[in-house]
């Protein structure tokens, strides 16, 4: 196990290093100079040069990459070109919107998918199974930003139960903050809940065909007892993997959903930064999201190897 962890950690670090290189190179080839962009068309040449020096743009590319990378490691993401505030602070504030939103959506998706998947599997081929499967087909096909708009139309405009957008901040109280994240979380959760329901169902059906379930039935357990006592635990491995993968989709999906609900999260930050050519912010936000995705994958791999020792040897 220790050898496996060591090997996976090396791969993790290598992935992050290459990812940082890809992000830096992609962003650095952007045409246009941020300094002259910020100062406008009529700026004096020496003013632009001074700003370039202040922003560190006069240094060579490898030097800038090194500064950025070592900053990332120590938590110093540099200073935003436009806001003149540390990127780490800006990201920190926004993360407290995007991260709870993604987690909220994951919890909702799980709460919907588990009962639905188990129920559909236990009544396989029946009318409930058919209805659940049909609903998941719809859930997978619906664009979540459109679903978000429909939610706003119904629950905010027609019924007035929720606000149509905006975020009061955590200072306004957990209840208020969670309330404003509820519609976005539902919109984000729906497609993921549909996928998870299908995975839960098919994974359970696979396990229910296994010999040890037949043995359990032969021992005298009812179909339902066998399902709850033996099948469910064994069906969880693929389900957990998908849940881990979904977290990264939720974090990325939040970028679009935040725009529907005007939530001040990482998604809005990234679009504002692109519009104002604030490349250091774009670089850092993309890198943080990649880091989150890679870490979650890493954690799943380890959990997987811990649950199923056969996997440690392969790869």
């Amino acid at each position: 196990m220790l050898h496996y962890i060591f090997k996976r950690t090396l791969i993790l670090l290598a992935t992050l290093f290459v990812a940082s290189l890809v992000v830096f190179v992609t962003i650095e080839v952007v045409p246009g100079d941020p300094a002259s962009y910020m100062l406008g068309l009529n700026a004096q040449e020496d003013t632009v040069a001074a700003l370039r020096a202040e922003l560190g743009l006069d240094k060579s590319r490898p030097a800038r990459y090194w500064t950025w990378l070592s900053g990332l490691v120590t938590g110093d993401f540099g200073t935003s070109y436009t806001y003149r505030t540390p990127v780490a602070d800006m990201v920190g504030d926004r993360l407290w919107v995007s991260l709870p939103l993604a987690i909220y959506a994951l919890v909702l998706a799980t709460l919907i998918a588990f009962p639905a998947g188990v129920y559909a599997a236990s009544r396989r081929g029946g009318i409930t199974d058919t209805v659940v499967m049909a609903l998941t087909q719809l859930g997978v096909a619906i664009p979540n930003f459109w679903f978000a708009m429909l939610l706003v139309l119904l629950f905010a405009i027609k019924l007035g139960w929720f606000s149509a957008g905006g975020f009061p901040g955590w200072d306004a109280g957990v209840w208020q903050a969670m309330k404003s994240l509820t519609l976005p979380a539902i919109a984000l959760a729906l497609p993921q809940a549909s996928i998870l329901t299908r995975v839960m169902r098919s994974s359970l059906l696979d396990v229910l065909n296994e010999d040890f379930i037949r043995t359990a039935r032969a021992k005298g357990l009812s179909r339902r007892q066998a399902l709850w006592k033996h099948a469910l635990r064994n069906a969880m491995v693929p389900v957990l993997t998908i849940m881990g993968l979904q977290f990264s989709f939720l974090l990325a999906g939040a970028i679009i959903i935040e725009n529907v609900f005007f939530l001040p999260g990482l998604g809005r930050l990234i679009f504002q930064s692109i519009a104002s050519r604030d490349l250091i912010v774009v670089e850092s936000v993309v890198m943080i999201l990649v880091l989150a995705v890679v870490l979650v994958t890493f954690a799943i791999d380890l959990a997987y190897a811990w649950v199923d020792p056969r996997l440690r040897g392969s790869r």
């Binding site: 992609t26 962003i27 989709f249 974090l251 692109i274 995705v293």
Partner: peptide, 14 residues
């Protein structure tokens, strides 16, 4: 490791 959306955002940013 890059969600598709992030690739798209980076490419359009550039």
């Amino acid at each position: 490791a890059f969600p598709a959306l992030l690739i798209a955002i980076m490419i359009t940013a550039v």
